[in-house]
């Protein structure tokens, strides 16, 4: 099995119920926590920010305790997190946060700060000595297997096939631990202005310069191209035409 000294951390955030907006454990972070617990008995569960009540959910999902790294408002979570997990072998997090910006950048920035490789869209993780093998999600039913050397940062895909269990007794048994306050580097004033998302975003379009008649023609014209038509020949030749088309476009592998 794995060497006992492997240090694994799971980074968790406060999520947001998409329907009610109520704070909760973030789904992707629960997956990261569950994956970490599947790899090691001892996992450091870390949260940068306030000791929000929603963090107790992670205790119910199996964290023995959640360590809260206090963060002054408006400060960047990167520096305290990077300082805390330096020296860890494996750092797991969710691919995209539910609250806040949800840009999916944290894993990449953290990996850069710690000079570690980063792999995202992880579905399954297994340890192989000083390497870790990851099954990555790709669309259209494909999965990719990659290996990276430890230490590494891995972000879990929302479709990771894990089945975290919520246990109320562990929620009562676990504790939130507050680390001593750190002076995180304050972020430069944010150029982003957020507003409630009521209006639909506008699609980027070329300016309309055509006159009415041309616009009408454009609106009724169908873009159907109508491809090649094979009428003649035996059934075998027609079947051959299909296979040739598939092979010419590399749609079949044989």
């Amino acid at each position: 099995m794995m060497p006992p000294q492997l240090k694994i951390a799971a980074l968790v955030s406060v999520g947001r119920n998409p329907a009610s907006g109520a704070p909760r454990a973030a789904r992707n972070d629960v997956l990261a926590l569950d994956a970490a617990l599947g790899l090691a008995r001892e996992v450091s569960v870390l949260h940068a920010g306030d000791a929000a009540p929603a963090l107790h959910d992670y205790l119910a999902y199996g964290a023995a305790s959640v360590e809260v790294l206090p963060l002054p408002p408006g400060a960047d979570a990167l520096a305290p997190l990077a300082g805390r997990v330096a020296g860890y072998d494996l750092i797991l997090c969710g691919q995209r946060a539910e609250a806040g910006q949800g840009s999916g950048m944290l894993a990449y920035r953290l990996a850069k700060a710690l000079n570690m490789p980063v792999v995202s869209a992880a579905l399954e993780i297994s340890l192989l000595g000083d390497e870790v093998e990851i099954v990555q999600f790709l669309p259209k039913g494909q999965r990719r297997v990659v290996r990276v050397s430890l230490p590494a940062v891995i972000a879990l895909h929302p479709l990771a096939p894990r089945n975290p269990r919520y246990v109320y007794a562990s929620r009562r048994a676990g504790r939130l631990l507050s680390a001593p306050a750190q002076v995180g580097a304050p972020l430069p004033a944010s150029p982003w202005q957020s507003e409630p998302a009521v209006k639909k975003p506008q699609k980027l379009k070329p300016p309309e310069t055509r006159q009415g008649h041309a616009r009408l023609l454009g609106a009724i014209a169908t873009e159907s191209k109508g491809g090649a038509l094979v009428r003649e020949g035996s059934a075998a030749e027609k079947a051959r035409a299909i296979l040739d088309y598939l092979r010419a476009n590399r749609l079949i592998g044989f």
């Binding site: 947001r16 998409p18 907006g21 539910e98 609250a99 806040g100 910006q101 949800g102 944010s190 150029p191 982003w192 202005q193 957020s194 507003e195 409630p196 998302a197 209006k199 975003p201």
Partner: peptide, 11 residues
């Protein structure tokens, strides 16, 4: 979108 789609941030 921020906040899981509840807010739109411009910049």
């Amino acid at each position: 979108y921020w906040q899981g789609g509840a807010a739109l941030a411009r910049g």
